[in-house]
Write a protein that binds this DNA or RNA. Structure first.
Length: 318
DNA sequence: CGTTTTTGACCAGCGC
DNA sequence: GCGCTGGTCAAAAACG
């Protein structure tokens, strides 16, 4: 799901630069050009062609008013964004709940009772270019009696090469394998991992190939990381190119979140370093921030303002 | 030499 | 109590 489709991140800022020199020094212009910003006529960006050097109090007051209004506008937009996010989240919760009711596990011999209120976050990733749809499943906690100790459980689906026999799911964290077992309902072995980045981190991961589609790895995460993501750089440069970032929502309501990541670019390139997506709540925020940043950098008004600000700064220093 | 992986043994929960 | 099964432990091997 592309965040930009939910929320219009175009800030539509009312940029009205005034206090910088109208003529952009060639030096600045060339520097901006070298930074990948196309050369454009700064003159066009001026709304008014007032002389810059007579900064009066009224100018400052006007500027202050403008900034205040802009701030207010941004605050309103933020509240709208939050509102939209909450609405989407509640819709998603409802959807996953309905799915959960439909999908009752056919394997009646499960040792542990299934719990429908548990968290379930599913990501269907791919490393060979085929994006798959996401699905929801239920996962029980180990001991129904220990309801207060329910670990946060999420499931991640990763498409891999069918010939790829490794049970490695790159998710940005560092894992240590501590066991492997062939389970009854699946001829493919299940691998058990512990988070090895922080010794105190309680998160565990189980990885097993799907019974239905052996090219799909099913990674089940238990618990929440109590540390930041280990090293995205390491993951980005590692060999397999399989990379999934776990969606984990740490809010108290433990809202299930459905995230599908396009991992097609990670294979065989180091581009994933720059495209790595964080989908934790802070990660969602980061995605939004990135979207906004993209929106800003592609906005000619913002570019004009940036050029004006930089040139003004340089002139000020001179 | 330190870290990670492998793999058989062991343990605990559950159904009969 | 016994057997089955999933999960974990820990010693040995492999790896960098």
């Amino acid at each position: 799901m592309d965040c930009s489709s939910w929320i219009n991140t175009s800030l539509d800022l009312n940029i009205n630069p005034r206090r910088v020199h109208r003529e952009l020094p060639k030096e600045v212009e060339s520097k901006l050009f070298s930074l990948g910003m196309p050369k454009f006529n700064v003159e066009e960006c001026w709304e008014s062609k007032r002389p810059i050097k007579d900064e009066s109090t009224s100018d400052l007051e006007e500027e202050l008013k403008r900034v205040t209004a802009e701030n207010k506008k941004l605050a309103e937009m933020l509240s709208v964004v939050c509102e939209n996010y909450n609405t989407l989240r509640s819709h998603l919760m409802e959807y996953t709940r309905k799915n959960g009711e439909k999908e009752t596990s056919p394997t009646s011999k499960k040792r542990k009772s299934e719990s429908s209120n548990n968290n379930s976050i599913c990501v269907m990733g791919t490393n060979n270019g085929n994006s798959e749809s996401s699905s929801t499943d239920e996962e029980s906690c180990k001991k129904p009696r220990e309801e207060t100790m329910k670990p946060k459980i999420s499931r991640v689906y990763v498409r891999t090469e069918a010939s790829d026999t490794t049970l490695i799911v790159k998710d940005g964290y560092q894992w240590r394998k501590y066991g492997q077992k062939v389970t009854r309902d699946n001829p493919c072995p299940r691998a058990y991992f512990k988070c090895s980045f922080a010794p105190s981190c309680p998160v565990k991961k189980k990885v097993q190939r799907s019974v239905d589609d052996q090219s799909v790895l099913v990674a089940t995460y238990e618990g929440e990381h109590n540390h930041p993501q280990a090293s995205s750089q390491m993951e980005a440069t590692s060999g397999s190119g399989r990379s999934v970032t776990l969606a984990s929502v740490p809010c108290a309501a433990a809202t299930p979140t459905l995230v599908t990541l396009d991992l097609t670019k990670s294979k065989g390139s180091n581009d994933s370093k720059s495209t790595k997506t964080k989908v934790d709540t802070p990660k969602v925020q980061q995605v939004l921030v990135e979207q906004m940043a993209t929106s800003l950098t592609t906005d000619p008004n913002f570019r004009a303002a940036l050029v004006a600000a930089i040139s003004g700064r340089l002139l000020h220093n001179n």
